[in-house]
Amino acid sequence: MIEVYIDGATAGNPGPSGAGIFINANGKVERYSIPLGIMTNHEAEYHALIKAQEICLELNFKTVSFRTDSELVNRAIEKEFVKNKTFAPLLEKALLLSEKFDLFFLKWIPSSQNKVADELARLAIRKNNNEDASR
């Protein structure tokens, strides 16, 4: 089974944001730092999941276990419901993507077990700032 660790981060809330994605595909490791623009931390967490799902589908990974330290995102996927309607379109997109996998799991883990994805998300924030500076 493919293991995917995800994290979203922002500098400020809202602020420049990034997604960190760490994929362990049976010993083959891939890392992604994706700048997301200006958004809230919770939005960045959802976008990290969505980007990770899209990457896994592009790589034709069909049995995937995603790990997140975001209790908000984990609960929303588990219950297929969000209280804050701002997140409804993001949840809907993540749920639609999850249906494209043969097996889709999302598990909450403590931040201490998600350090690589966190570092990648923080790197993405800096990339975001570098892109802004180059415009």
Rank of each mutant, 00 (worst) to 15 (best):
E3I: 04
V4F: 05
V4Q: 04
Y5E: 12
G8F: 06
T10V: 05
T10S: 14
A11V: 02
N13L: 07
N13E: 07
P14W: 01
P14M: 03
P14Y: 02
P14G: 01
P14I: 01
P16Y: 10
P16I: 13
A19Q: 10
G20R: 07
I21T: 10
I21H: 09
F22K: 09
N24S: 14
N24E: 15
A25F: 13
N26A: 14
N26C: 13
G27V: 08
K28Q: 15
S33L: 08
I34T: 13
I38F: 06
M39K: 11
T40F: 04
N41P: 10
N41V: 09
E43V: 15
A44E: 02
E45T: 01
E45S: 02
H47V: 01
H47R: 14
L49M: 12
I50C: 11
I50T: 09
K51N: 13
K51H: 13
A52S: 13
Q53R: 06
Q53D: 08
Q53T: 07
C56Q: 10
L57H: 07
L57S: 07
L57V: 09
L59M: 14
F61R: 06
D69M: 08
S70G: 09
S70T: 06
S70P: 05
E71W: 11
E71P: 04
V73K: 05
N74V: 05
N74L: 07
A76C: 08
A76I: 07
I77F: 04
V82M: 05
V82G: 03
K83D: 06
K83C: 02
N84L: 03
K85F: 05
K85I: 08
K85C: 01
T86Y: 10
A88H: 03
P89C: 02
P89I: 01
P89D: 03
L90Y: 11
L90Q: 04
L90S: 04
L91T: 03
L91P: 01
L91H: 02
K93S: 02
A94R: 00
A94M: 01
L95T: 02
L96H: 01
L97V: 07
L97W: 03
S98G: 08
E99W: 00
K100N: 14
D102R: 07
D102T: 11
L103W: 02
F104P: 00
L106R: 00
L106H: 00
W108P: 07
W108T: 12
I109R: 11
P110Y: 05
P110G: 04
S111G: 15
S112Y: 01
Q113S: 13
Q113C: 10
Q113V: 06
Q113Y: 13
V116A: 04
V116R: 09
A117Q: 11
D118F: 04
E119T: 11
L120P: 06
A121R: 11
R122E: 11
L123I: 14
I125P: 02
R126F: 04
K127M: 08
N128D: 13
N128S: 12
N128K: 05
N129L: 14
N129S: 10
N130V: 03
E131H: 01
A133H: 06
S134Y: 05
S134Q: 10
R135L: 11
R135T: 06
